[in-house]
Amino acid sequence: MSFVRYKAIVEEGDVVIVYLTHESMFPLTLEAGRIFQTRFGALRHSDIIGKRFGSKILCGGGRGYVYALHPTPELWTLTLPHRTQIVYTTDISMLTLQLDLKPGSVVVESGTGSGSVSHAVIRTIAPTGHLYTFEFHQQRAEKAREEFSDHGLSNLVTVTHRNVCTDGFGLSDVADAVFLDLPSPWEAVASAKLALKKAGGRLCSFSPCVEQIQRTCDKLRSHGFCDITTIECLLRTFDVRTIALPEPDLGQPDSCVQTRHEGSETAQSFTFKSAVPPKDMPGHTGFLTFATLYPQVETS
């Protein structure tokens, strides 16, 4: 299977996202004969194999059911094993668009981290683009390489274990876009500039703290990057509900008697369907700084 190509029927070896509830999903690599324990009971891999993606699968001997979903980079982001803090879909969406990514784009990324951004980028640049992703930690790099292989993405990505801040990307004139998610992104700016195509390209740096973006923007300016902008993008998810707000009893003759009885809610209500904002929401993930490297001028 491949994360970047939909298919209809689940086969052995495929990754499915097991959907229990809105808040509870797990990735599962299918092996005939194995059993996955869910809170709704045992789920037999064999019950999934051969079904259509999106099918309802009984588990616990029919006591409950789950859905077997086709993996997407977004479902993967929600369910992947965290090896680091990860970048979530709201920011990934924005950086994908702002880096002008499309099939055929060549992208350089560091660090790979848990591979959340990598999967989304590969999806967008496939089948003709390539991702060069760099990870400081050897184990994380190896784990990512494995995952990409399991997800049918090996030919689209090159994982390198390297500290790009000290050793650079070792790439020159290849990339359409560079994405930096590093504690000290400014240390990678010079090397990122080298990696970008001479015809120009885009750069994005993701950092949670103001001081990080301040240093990065300074560095970008001094290295000739243009159109430097920093944004913050927050996601607010609404709860769709029907709300009945009781009308106050102001002493109308006809409603006076009833209102003394708490149990009888015959009092009128103002009822409406609403999208209720969440009590709490993410207040900050990180700042996204974007910059353009324009083609070099060969003029007087």
């Binding site: 709201t90 973006i213 301040q214 923007c217 430097i228 902008t229 920093t230 944004i231 913050e232 993008c233 927050l234 996601l235 607010r236 998810t237 609404f238 769709v240 999208a275 700042f287 700084t289």
Partner: peptide
């Protein structure tokens, strides 16, 4: 999911 995104630029 019903969502709205909030977007603000920062001057650095």
């Amino acid at each position: 999911q019903l969502t709205e995104t909030w977007l603000r630029n920062f001057q650095i």
